[in-house]
């Protein structure tokens, strides 16, 4: 199943996330993170999307995965953060 969320990050930017996931076990098949935020280097957003595949839509697991990718690839976000991304993804499930 595929669903979308629009989430305005507090003090930040507008996040629009689209998630395709397995409704039985809530595992992400595919994810598209769009919006008017900034990320450095920009190309790492595709990497985050890729790494989020096969992750369960669960606050703790998402946060852990996103934080580990941010650390590993030295990603700097402006206008959004790991918590904001997690919230946007969780909103897709509601």
């Amino acid at each position: 199943m595929r669903s979308q969320s629009v989430y305005k990050v507090p003090q930040g930017k507008l996040l629009k996330i689209s998630v395709e996931y397995n409704k039985r076990n809530n595992v992400i098949k595919n994810i598209w993170i769009t919006g008017d935020f900034f990320a450095y280097p920009e190309e790492t957003i595709e990497l985050i999307e890729k790494k989020l595949r096969n992750t369960v839509i669960d606050q703790e697991q998402l946060l852990e995965k996103i934080r580990s990718v941010i650390t590993e690839y030295h990603i700097q976000f402006i206008g959004v953060d790991a918590e904001g991304l997690t919230k946007g993804i969780l909103m897709c499930k509601l």
Partner: peptide
């Protein structure tokens, strides 16, 4: 549009 935005949206 910004790098992260979707044309369709």
């Amino acid at each position: 549009i910004g790098y992260f935005q979707s044309v369709a949206e």
